[in-house]
Structures are given as C-alpha cells and as structure tokens.
Design a protein around this nucleic acid. Structure first.
Lengths: 192, 192
DNA sequence: GTCTATATACAGATAGAC
DNA sequence: GTCTATCTGTATATAGAC
C-alpha cells in the first residue's frame, strides 16, 4: 500500500474514534509509520486531510432500489430496515464519525454535510415509496402517513444505532430492538 | 451572578457546542468576561472544570413516578413520552453535550457515565412498568414484551432527538415524529 | 517522496501584584 | 478574588537535505 493511502486509512480510524481536534498529525504519522512532513506533502493542511477522509468515507454509501424491487411490499420495508442495520454494523467507525460530527458544530465542510443529508433523504424516500405502494396494493393499512412513518422508522433506526454506539449493555441488544421495530412499525400495519 | 457561576455557565455552553478539546480556556475566559487565571483559581484544572460542569448539568435530571401515577395506563406511557420530549427540548445544550460524549471515547469521568446510564435505566423501567400494568389491566395488548418495547420507545425518542439536534429541516418536525411514535408504539397497542 | 530539524502559534497552567 | 505577565509543552506547518 502506498503512503498516501496508509495516511488516509490511519486518519480515518483516528478521526472516527478521537474526533478532529484531539487527533494530532503526530499521532497519525506515528500510526501510519511516516513522518509528519510527509502528511503535508500529500495534503495541504490538516483540514484538507480531513476533507479527503470524509470524501473517501462517504463515497460508497448508497442503497439502490434494485436491491429490493423483487420483494413483496411489506417485506420490502423490512428488508430496507435490515439493509440499513447491516450497513451501519459494517461501517461502525465511519458511522460514529458522521454521528458525532452532526452533533457538534465542529469544523466540517458544508458540502459533506449536504451529501450525508442527501443519503438520508434518499433512504427515507425509498421507505416512504414502499409504504405507499403497500397501501395502494391493499396490504398495508391506510391509517398511516407514508412520509411521516418513514421518517419515524429512520429516526428509530438512528436511535438504536446511537444506543449500539454507546455500548450500553444491560438493555435489549440492537438486533432485538430492530426486530421489535419491524414488528411494531411494519408487521402490525399489515392488513389482515 | 458571581464569577464562578458565570464561568460554569459559559463552560457548559462551549463544551456542549464545541466539545472538550476544542474549547479553550481562553475562549471560556473571554466569553465569561474573566481572566484565564481566575478559572484556575476557582477550578484546579480544565478537567476539574469539566467535571464540575457535568455534575452541575446532570444534577436536576430525574422523572419521578408521582408525576404520572394519577393517569390511566396507556395515557401514562404517552405522558412519559411527552415528559421525555419536554425535558430534552428544555435542555438542548446539555443533552447535546451528553449525546456527543457518549459517541466519543473522549476524556470523561466513568462516574458521570454511570450516572447518565442510570437515568436512562430509570426512565426505561418507568415505561416498562406502565406497559406491564396496562397488560395486566387488559387495556394493552399482551403481544408485546414490555421491557423490549420500552427499550424501543426510548431508542426511538433518542433517534428523534438526534435528528432534532442535527437541525435537519426538510423532514417531519420532532413534534410530528413524537406524535407518530405515540400512535404507532402506544395507541395502536390498545385493546379495542 | 520521504526524511530531520525548525519556525510559529497557542494551549494549559503558574507567579505574583493588588 | 481578580488581574497581568509569563512559563512550558505541544500542535500545525515549513525548510531544506537526500
């Protein structure tokens, strides 16, 4: 692996666990087994390194509609929930990164901020569309507002995520909570 | 207001918005209209100031059972949800503080950490007990597991909270989401 | 491209006058 | 109790050899 990539990977891990401010370039340099100066040769500044890390991390994120098109409608929603959960489990580091960024008005690019919000919107729309088509086909109750309900599902997923990230142990496991979420927010809405 | 209190209030606000590391004592001193040296006269170190801020912030937190004892059972749960929501709305700064603390392995006292987890547990138990007594009196469906369902309600509330803290605007308002939560996770569980 | 050595700025913390 | 002035460490960033 070339030094630039090594720096990026190390920086991604350290920024994610310690945040921007308390991650020193000396620490990055040490963990990446390069000199501090080399970081400045590859990146103009600490901030530029940070932007590069963000861009690199967000790049592969996106759930495509094709992945769920073949399923029945209520199953589609439950599958979307599973996809979200699987995704965050596989990307704990960067997801923690994003979460803590959003909770602070710390130094971050507005462009990046907008991109993440766009991903959320994308996911919420997929869920809302699936709910709506379930109502149209008569398999889901018409009592709910698809947009609002999709927003609630996403918020709940994020709440479970936060709990998982904080590592609170004496409570129901994330898996159990997701199951409870699917039962309460999807299965119970099926028209009998 | 005496200088010590002024320092504490300013530090609380700055730690909450910028985090521990990127809040300098120079900044605190400037905003509190005191000298840096005065901070060290009142507090032994930056870390000690931080601990004092934490202790002061967490002190008034607790929802007591008496506040809901007089209500009918499903209303009890909905009332608990409202209380949680009201509480976080009135304490946005410190709640943001707690949230971001839990997401980082930043410098923080384990004692404080334990106290916050205890508050969560307390609230979750209140909800679980209300759900259980609803099942026993026959007003709530027995299909749910009170403990797991209470945990889901709390997670969902935290998810809504996170969304509110990030200030995402183009989605359903927090109030609307809480309403959706009460409908889906409480009202729909009522035995007809 | 990668290094060592160094400049510069600012952080937390202290000394001592009032 | 509150201040000004200062110490000391460490951070980002640069200079220049190889």
């Amino acid at each position: 692996m070339d030094a630039r990539t090594k720096i990026l990977e190390t920086a991604t891990r350290l920024f994610a666990t310690h945040g921007y401010d308390s991650t020193s370039l000396a620490h990055v340099a040490k963990d990446a087994h390069v000199s501090k100066a080399l970081i400045f040769w590859h990146f103009e500044s600490k901030e530029a390194l940070y932007e590069a890390v963000l861009a690199r991390t967000i790049e592969p994120y996106r759930i495509e509609p094709e992945a769920i098109a073949s399923l029945g409608v209520p199953d589609q929603v439950e599958h979307l929930i599973d996809l979200y959960f699987e995704f965050v489990t596989e990307n704990v580091h960067s997801v923690r990164f994003f979460m803590s960024m959003f909770l602070r008005d710390e130094k971050h690019s507005d462009d990046f901020f907008a991109k993440v919000l766009d991903l959320y919107r994308h996911y919420r729309d997929l869920v809302a569309k699936a709910l709506l088509s379930g109502q149209k086909s008569g398999t889901l109750t018409v009592e709910i507002d698809p947009q609002a309900h999709a927003a609630l599902i996403l918020s709940s997923l994020n709440g479970i995520l936060v709990q998982a990230l904080t590592g609170e142990q004496d409570v129901a496991s994330p898996e159990r909570l997701v199951q409870e979420l699917k039962t309460s927010l999807v299965a119970r809405l099926r028209v009998q």
